[in-house]
Write a protein that binds this DNA or RNA. Structure first.
Lengths: 362, 362
DNA sequence: TCCGTAGACG
DNA sequence: CGTCTACGGA
């Protein structure tokens, strides 16, 4: 039995607008902590993760975990029937195959109720390791949107380079080449939270600096429960080198939590600046980036351990940038040869996208 | 080597918006005086002329004349990547086949750089004689846009009549006929700067009043260097009657200058009002119409030597009127049986269109 | 910001 | 083949 009352239906509408083009069906995994959604995009190239914490709801109750298989087009239609500032109550019974949505106008003089058919979706939950990324950038969401849209006019893909100068987006096209450089607002790129600061980075697995070594340890730890799933094949160019980003995870959720705590104490002993660390240090940890918007200044913040250069499909990035309506800022997390993480945080939740880099010159 | 820094990329964007539908490829002819563009529209019916004087740039340097062959669709794309208030620096090396554009945001924390491929365009520069038009009208650009758009809903072409009453736009269509009359704001049409003021005008070449005779003299003078170009054939219905409007010109620019001086002294002895003459007397002379906007009052000003009635394709006029974003006012210059000149002036430059009148009842 | 056109999906 | 959605232009 789920009953979750959202103060503003608009949030859900925005979330659906953000992902409906990428994903057609997905499970809304509800448990006592909130609602999570995880889905590969239709072409299995990108991974979308949405988290809505129970604390973000006006009322929230979920007796036992239940996955609600939703056709996103249907849900979008149903949500179109809500005004942005209506409250929205989601209800699902344990044995039932439908989701009940009730919209109440602010002044309560209007109550609309919808029942949407649910479906069975056998999508396994992937385990997403809490990677420490080598480059962590916070920038205005509108700026990111602008850049990827601009560059998508010129070419198919963008090379993103993070170095001491800042972050640079480069696209080569038929008619023209483009390059956009963003410098950090305060003028300096925060460099390194480890002892290493090499000029040119690994192209492979030789990097054994502290953070990435730890990340791999984690990945390996999770690998022990990894299943032969097809869902994450595209995300992992090198399936067998211990660098898997996504692995089907066990039901034990405690593991991630423990890892986080461990990292936190470590992180605080490093030379990261407080301002930047609170914003971008722990991207994969819930409640860390919460309320970013409230404190977001509108600037560009860049922290990096080493230079990172990765190439991505602009089509996807443009798609991701639709989430701008959910947050003023966006975080980009990158390490070489690892999927990019694009994260938009909102009050008590986030929406994240993972996109594998293009390999070679395609 | 060209290096030209524009304070506002918006100017270039507006220029391209104005012409990109008319012309696909064009040379940006750069020399020490500035940048000029001249191109026939795709169907070789209209001529577009753009001038950006070097003084309009924040920085300008062009060592030697260089024609930059540009695909306007490509340039439009690249310019879409600039915000209107970004500065825009154009650079082109002498031997290189690409144009470099750098956009800097106001606060300079964002630098975007684009390289656009150039192409070879063998378009000859046409010589455009400095005609003295029989009717010179200044009106609000928005008014002109409105009129041609309105009338284009009714018919294909518009008959423009200038007489003592004012300027009248008439269109006959299947469903309805339309007629819009604009009277001069100050109530009077400035009439004639010669001794003649006949009621009904020439349909041919019998008019030998002072100004038009001189204009023809000029046309003939330039004809001596006219080449057998195809570019201007469509502009000249009557190639052999000494009334050619556009001729491939020699490299000698001095000729035009001398003519202008000559006219000026003459004009000052005529009964033209100072205000109107400074605005519309010398449309084809650079720096004469500069800063029109600064002094433009928003009214309609009409000066004429004789009645003029000409018919034009509305499709083109509607297209021309896209330049409204560049200026509050537009000048229409007309003489019978001669192409209409539509001119929008902006700070240190202008964009002009020439359109041959329709002959007969087509 | 709205409308029209083009592309994708059912 | 028709409908719906998304993107581009006015």
């Amino acid at each position: 039995m789920l009953e979750a009352k959202l103060q503003e239906a608009g949030l859900l509408k925005k979330l659906l607008d953000a992902i409906k083009e990428l994903v057609t069906d997905a499970n809304f995994d509800c448990n006592e902590e909130g609602i999570n959604l995880q889905a590969m995009d239709n072409s299995h190239v990108a991974l979308v993760v949405v988290k809505m914490e129970s604390t973000g709801f006006k009322k929230y109750r979920c007796d036992r975990p239940m996955p609600l298989g939703v056709n996103l087009a249907s849900l979008t239609k149903v949500l179109k029937c809500a005004k942005d500032d209506d409250t929205c109550t989601l209800k699902a019974g344990d044995g039932l195959d439908s989701l009940n949505l009730v919209y109440e106008a602010k002044n309560s003089d209007r109550i609309a109720e919808y029942d949407m058919k649910l479906m069975d979706i056998d999508a396994e939950q992937l385990g997403i390791p809490d990677t420490d990324y080598d480059a962590r950038i916070t920038l205005p969401a509108a700026e990111f949107t602008r850049i990827v849209k601009d560059l998508s006019l010129l070419g198919e893909s963008v090379r993103i380079e993070v170095n001491k100068e800042g972050i640079r987006f480069v696209s080569d096209g038929e008619a023209a080449n483009g390059s956009v450089l963003l410098k950090p607002t305060d003028g300096k790129v925060k460099i390194g939270d480890d002892d290493e600061e090499e000029e040119e980075e690994k192209e492979d697995e030789e990097d054994e600096d502290e953070d990435s070594a730890k990340a791999k340890k984690k990945a390996k730890k999770q690998k022990k429960v990894k299943k032969e799933s097809n869902d994450d094949v595209e995300m992992n160019g090198d399936e067998e080198n211990g660098n898997e980003e996504f692995t089907a995870k066990s039901d034990d959720e405690g593991e991630d939590e423990k890892e986080d705590d461990e990292e936190e104490s470590e992180g605080s002993s490093k030379k990261r600046k407080k301002a930047s660390s609170s914003k971008s240090k722990k991207p994969a940890k819930k409640a860390k980036t919460k309320k970013d918007d409230d404190e977001y200044s509108g600037g560009v913040d860049i922290a990096m351990n080493q230079h990172v250069t990765l190439t991505f499909s602009l089509k996807y990035l443009v798609n991701f940038s639709k989430s701008s309506s959910l947050s003023d800022s966006v975080q980009l997390m990158m390490s070489n040869d690892v999927p990019l993480l694009v994260s938009y945080s909102f009050e008590s939740g986030y929406i994240r996208y993972y996109l594998a880099p293009k390999i070679g010159d395609d």
